[in-house]
Design a protein around this nucleic acid. Structure first.
Lengths: 151, 151
DNA sequence: TTAACAATCCGTAGTCACTACAGAGTCAAG
DNA sequence: CTTGACTCTGTAGTGACTACGGATTGTTAA
């Protein structure tokens, strides 16, 4: 099948498929005389694997590790379990962070129950205070408030 | 104060302060004869505001909007409330997504209770199946599993 | 005074996982 | 033969920084 069909059956944008090939996640397929990529079912399987992992918010580096295990069927899969456990810990930590955030935002929102002039807005006033000293600024592995839903 | 001191009192990396200036969030300060930036207390206040907003996972664009209100004290702050409400909705949505994710990951983890050879690993096997069709791949405003904690 | 060292300057490139072009080539149907 | 859909490569943009290189400036100790 050509790249468009692979895109359709796996629900992956064409550009993303080419990107995965450049990144070495998906093997370069054979080409037609006209230089079009021709994929086998094995490619579709591997791409489904990658997309399934991505839908679970794994990074491409994590997926690379899992693919190595898939390619070495005799290996012990203990490290797969370890990777998954670590990922679960990441996600759980991010949920906790966002819950704290949500609470802070709601409390902030209560500072200005009605619209008034900006000079007396409790929200703007409160934001001018330094944040709680220990407050971390998100920048790790699991995304914060601006990274969740595709446009 | 020089940039290093501002960095210290606000807990912001020096590079980030210069970045905010380039982005127009922080006004360019006066300079010494030797071309070093000299900041006033007003800069520190404004930077605290920005960092407080960032710690609440707002985007720089959202912060730009809030700063415009801060700079127009006569304006009605209704839009501030609206922005905050929308942000709270974003965060709540991301929490729901991550909870679904966490459940999926834990269920996946149960597929391979003990380490064994990769060929029979229930996790690798399950990941090879296409993901649930509706499963979105994170890419919106609030970060996913890899974006939460600064290194 | 001089030497060492810290702090600062600017500009550019890298991060992650794509996404969006531009401009060219290929293929199938009518 | 032409139209239009598809595909190709390569490059640049996204957000919010972070990290570097190489130059300058400032501070302190000998």
């Amino acid at each position: 099948m050509k790249i468009g069909e692979l895109a359709r059956v796996t629900g992956t944008p064409v550009e993303t498929i080419r990107y995965y090939e450049r990144e070495g996640l998906l093997a370069a397929p054979a080409r037609t005389d006209g230089n079009f990529r021709i994929y086998e079912d094995t490619h579709a399987e591997r791409l489904s694997f990658i997309r399934h992992c991505r839908s679970l918010d794994m990074s491409l580096d994590e997926i690379r590790i899992l693919l190595r295990f898939k390619d070495a069927p005799g290996a012990n899969c203990g490290d797969v379990n370890t990777l998954l456990d670590a990922h679960i810990v990441h996600v759980a930590a991010r949920i906790r962070e966002l819950r704290v955030l949500e609470r802070q935002l709601k409390s902030l929102r209560e500072q200005c129950p009605q619209a008034r002039d900006a000079a007396h807005c409790g929200i703007l006033h409160e934001l001018s205070q330094p944040a709680c000293p220990g407050a971390p600024i998100s920048g790790g592995h699991v995304h914060g408030a601006h990274g969740g839903v595709r446009k």
